[in-house]
Write a protein that binds this DNA or RNA. Sequence first.
RNA 1: GUACGAUUAGCUCAGUUGGUAGAGCGUCCGCUUGACUCGCGGAAGGUCAGAAGUUCGAAUCUUCUAUCGUACACCA
Length: 912
Amino acid sequence: MHEKFLQPYNPKDTEDRIYTLWEESGMFNPDHAVRMGVTDPKAEAFSIVLPPPNVTGQLHLGHAGMLTIEDIMVRFHRMDGKKTLWIPGTDHAAIATQSKVEKLLAKDNIRRHDLGRDAFLEHVQAFAHASQETILHQVKKMGASIDWSRLAFTLDDEREKAVHTAFIRMYHDGLIYQKERIVNWDPKGQTVISDDEVVHEERAGMMYTFKYSADFPIAIATTRPETKLGDTGVAVHPNDPRYQAYIGKTYTCTFAGQELEIRIVADEAVDPEFGTGAVGLTPAHSMTDWEIAERHDLPMKKVINEYAKMTVGMEGVLGQKTTVAREAIVAWIREQGLLEKEESITQNISTAERTGGIIEPLPKMQWWIDTEKKIIIPHNTIPGLDPQTPYSLKEVMLHVVQSGATNILPDRFEKVYYHWIEKLRPWNISRQIWYGHRIPVWYTKEGAPVLPKEQKLVFMRHGQSEYNVAGKIQGQYNAPLTETGREQARTAAASLVGTSFSKIICSDLDRAHETANIIAKELGLSVEVWPELREIDAGTLSGAPHHETLDTLAYVIQSGTGETLAELEARARIVVEKIKNMNTSEDILFVGHSTFTSLVFAVWHNIPAQDFLAKHGVWELSHTETEQIIRLHYPTDETLTQDEDTLDTWFSSGLWTFSTMGWPDSSQDLKEFHPTSVLETGYDIIFFWVARMILMTTYLLGTVPFKTVYFHGLVRDEQGRKISKSLGNNIDPLELINDYGADAVRMALIIGTGPGQDSKIGENKIKAYKKFANKLWNISRFILEQTHEVAYIPDYTYHADDQKLLDAQRALITEITEEMRNYKYYLVGEKLYHYMWHTLADDIIEDSKAIFAADDTQKKLSRQQFLIHTLSTCLKTLHPFMPYITEEIWQLIPDHHKDNSHMLMVQAWPQK
RNA sequence: GUACGAUUAGCUCAGUUGGUAGAGCGUCCGCUUGACUCGCGGAAGGUCAGAAGUUCGAAUCUUCUAUCGUACACCA
């Protein structure tokens, strides 16, 4: 037995070492796990993306809870034999990060406009970078078995390409448009925000009922008299008997020194019961008034500016803050004897989520996403939708949840989701801040928009050749197409009708050239031959049968008689350079070969061939199957100026499940891991993120982003309060890990949490699981002490007593396996705790003491076998919950107690 | 206002299709028991928020009420 067991379990001496062991093993990466023979290459995939934390600082307990649940999912599915991928990343969180940095700079009396856009962005980037480092460190400390080789950031180059491609496509489909509309203007943050970023706060206010002037026929009520300077109409209910005579008439009057022209209109939106039953309409400064005014074609008069100051009015009003102007106007109304009623009410006012600024509705030119326009969804493969029928984004978003293509847990959030979609207005996606994806639109001097041109470079494999039929390696041997191959080319051509290729470029080998010719003829295109596109020179293997397991490339390299990897890479580089120098942004179809195309992809993406092959292997393309690379051509005309605005941070987050997998280019990850299996996130971002991901993914990929959404609850403090900075109840997960170990923190965070259920956590709870870790440590010590000289016998026939214990254990495993599949982690955690402490330790081990003291060697051996078996079963089942201590104990178990030498992390989940 | 959720032991929560109320922590009493004092043995503690109904039987199903919470909508 290892001497470590002479001391109580010490997480501090264990966790970092174990994490390094996992990381260095490469097993967080599913491709590596397959290569090492741990995962079956044909295994089902399980993939999730980490909801990227904002780079605004550091993680809190809520993040820790999220990481725990996700890591449990991932570790369970990995052990259950799935090809398991968890992608890490962080979110630039535009407004949040920018305002954080602005606050930091304000301490040194620096404002962003003093610095200028570029210098300010350097500050933000430095901050974001430091913050990201902190966050990633915390993620590791929690024990997250996440694939660091795929780390992404919502604002890095790859994600920018995805964002721009998405924007361009939506623009051309008319889903993104620019329009002057009334928006939620945040005077404090000096930017527009979306409807979802507005939070309502209850405040005390005054409501005034008055007439514009003595001879105006109708009295109106308002809480904001200063906006009345911008009134252009009064709305009444069409059936209100009191006002029938006035409908359609226009009155002029002088209100607080301002000439007003007011038309009376009838609109259903007016509640005749409320106030005077008449609404003064201020189209420029009220959402609902704007909508009514639009229906009746009333003019709009802007009287408040971006700093919430009056732009018109008498002395004491003009140039004043709205709040000051209000008092002046109320005083005037009172003096004139126009005031009919004045009452104090509680009203809800709109504030900005991030800055707390009071929203000033203003008309502004902004970019919007239209969710009502019906369009043909490209590549639509969503079950239940006809690919040829136009749908609105709204309809699709509703459909995928209603049809169960995406399943939401717990169910009750489906209703919340539907409700949100039904009342969804156009989504404002432009922000007047600097940090974020700058809108990829340039303007001519005349103001005409210019967008980057998207170029599609599509790579197709040739049709079937005679050597393909014969199952032989071709390399550069010139085998002709078969009749089937020609048919495949014709079918491919038919499917390409309507695409916009300007020409076809093909390899000079007959099978590619002929395929290209057939397609070119059908589509009326020219064919250009590039000998550089040839398949790999297979040397002496040309004509030989395929290797049983190796792909052709690996086989050729191994043979040493054909092209070397370096030569291939060099040739691929020539091709890539040639493409880049072509000086065209037209779409091009390349017809070539599977293996060599893989190399072109690697070089194009600046991945060394060695790494590319290690990660993905070569493309295994079937005949006439295509892969694509998207190249964006940006405007180069110096007289153009780029839009000053940036995109809503949720625009880039909405692409997250696939922008992290190489989209818009083809990738192995997209094929294997998308749609993702589960999205695990907080229910507080159902609209911001979940709905937007569904919107973006269904439109851009024609699929759902995830099959299941699992909403976790909020983590609260011991008193059930929300964790917040102002309350000062924010506990740093790192401190807790330092005091109790990550395993204990994880257990405390998982137990007592169901989907959608808020959970409370305090140090006592964590302490309890630290004790449990130690208990497990001592259980292991006892078992190892009593069994170390015994070798494990896998199919041992147990004594009847032990068989009974084993049956009970198996029943438990069946039960918890089912619960793991149903996301009932909290239940499993509790059951394992109970089994290990109160069954294994209290009963089984206690009984064993007598057995080991007695002389019955049969019975003794049976119990020893049972304990060896049980310890490893316990470690395996508990591993997703408490990965560190279980792995540590596993490493200390002698080899003759194990089936294999792999780490616990990649052991198979017990079947029985 | 509308919708949703919660209400079970002092605290935090389980309770799967209705079949005699469960766990952890805490509390109290005892124990230097050869794995473990980060421990062991034992005990107390609940009209399952309230009312009505369905049922042979309700924490569980239905209706209403109360309290708390969340989201959405907000009316000038």
